[in-house]
Nucleic acid binder design. Structure first.
Lengths: 216, 216
DNA sequence: GTCTATATTGGGATAGAC
DNA sequence: GTCTATCCCAATATAGAC
């Protein structure tokens, strides 16, 4: 019996001696996966999950539909991965906030970031829709894990802002939290853009102002 | 030639001497149509247009699917009719507003009405979704006609409220209008309800307060 | 006008060649 | 791993009996 096959059979965990760097093929595979997720983000941010089709994704990426399924097991997993990546970015952005500024400014900054991401087509608008994806997300551990981190961080800012007297007594913490999430997917954003009268920066500032101060 | 048929032939517009009251059959037909539209409103307010199926509608009404198509030519027409009926109710509610009160109170009242309707399952959440129904609505003249009336009435209140110094100078009229429409379909409503901590009335008041005054 | 049964299309997922 | 060609199910819409 040849030695190689004996080793293979007896110790399947043994790796090759050379430390494996990602091959060209592997890098290309990773790059393609990023390309897919970018396309998915853009489609999700305009049409939402239910109206997104796998044919459409494949066509926009420039690959065949079955190739999609080599990267992601299903449409639900594809969307869940995109959402998880989005939450990763949100967490990065939150950690980058200065600690010295008033907590209310941190909250405004994170909303500003989300609105900008939405306008640039990087913000899936899932929470606003009772989509079939919601259950899949709840069952997707990596997503839930990041969502908990995110709500923890924002929740602390909200409590801090309240201590600093920046939040009205009659508005409960959770309402602030829900409102911030909802504003990130607010159709008002699309409406304002469709008027063609404002720059993206102006739209973001208007939305933040109305969200925190109302009309008055 | 018999007189009756002569009359019939020469003046087809002549109606029978007896004033035709709706027959039992016709009343039943109308009642069924109302039942269908109520079911559609409820489904639209929870799942939205794309996730609503004609099977589901028929099953909940308690009739067979083909019977639906005796009342409405297509799923799009069914939703458009439901939406038009909703706008009719909104217009009625607007006309019922007292003219003496401050315009801002009128705006709050109409939002309160819309939020209550939503909580009771009578408010389709179409504007919040880039749904396939949007194009059909734009092409549905009765809907567009009422939408124009509605935006006209609300637009006048907004201008009046501004004259009365109730709206911040930096917030344009159209942003107020868009925001009111968006709040009527806000997912925050669902979030608050799912906590189970508030009555419907409390939810409505919280939403109105945050919409007009923000968090502060 | 209402039903049972069916035509048809769109889209998620896959078999098998290369 | 990627493609072409296909399966299969769900959902809109309809045919035809009563």
């Amino acid at each position: 019996m040849p030695i190689r096959s004996l080793i293979k059979a007896s110790s399947p965990a043994v790796k090759p001696a050379v430390v494996k760097r990602p091959s060209f093929r592997e890098k290309q595979f990773q790059a393609r996966e990023d390309a897919i997720l970018s396309v998915v983000n853009r489609i999700l941010s305009t049409k939402g999950y239910d109206l997104m089709t796998m044919d459409e994704v494949a066509a926009e990426v420039g690959i065949a539909k079955p190739s999609l399924y080599k990267h992601f097991d299903s449409k639900e997993m594809l969307a869940a991965t995109a959402m998880t990546r989005l939450l990763d970015r949100a967490l990065l952005q939150i950690k980058a906030q200065a600690v010295e500024q008033p907590a209310l400014d941190s909250l405004k900054a994170v909303l500003r970031w989300a609105l900008t991401a939405h306008l640039e087509g990087n913000m899936p608008l899932l929470p606003s829709t009772r989509s079939t994806i919601r259950q899949a997300l709840v069952n997707h551990a990596p997503y839930v894990e990041r969502l908990i981190q995110l709500t923890d961080a924002i929740g602390q800012w909200i409590q801090q802002a309240r201590k600093e007297g920046q939040i009205c007594k009659s508005v409960p913490d959770e309402l602030v939290m829900f409102t911030l999430f909802a504003r990130a997917c607010d159709p008002t954003l699309q409406f304002l853009r469709e008027t063609g009268q404002y720059t993206n920066a102006q739209i973001v500032e208007l939305m933040v102002q109305v969200c925190f101060e109302g009309f008055t």
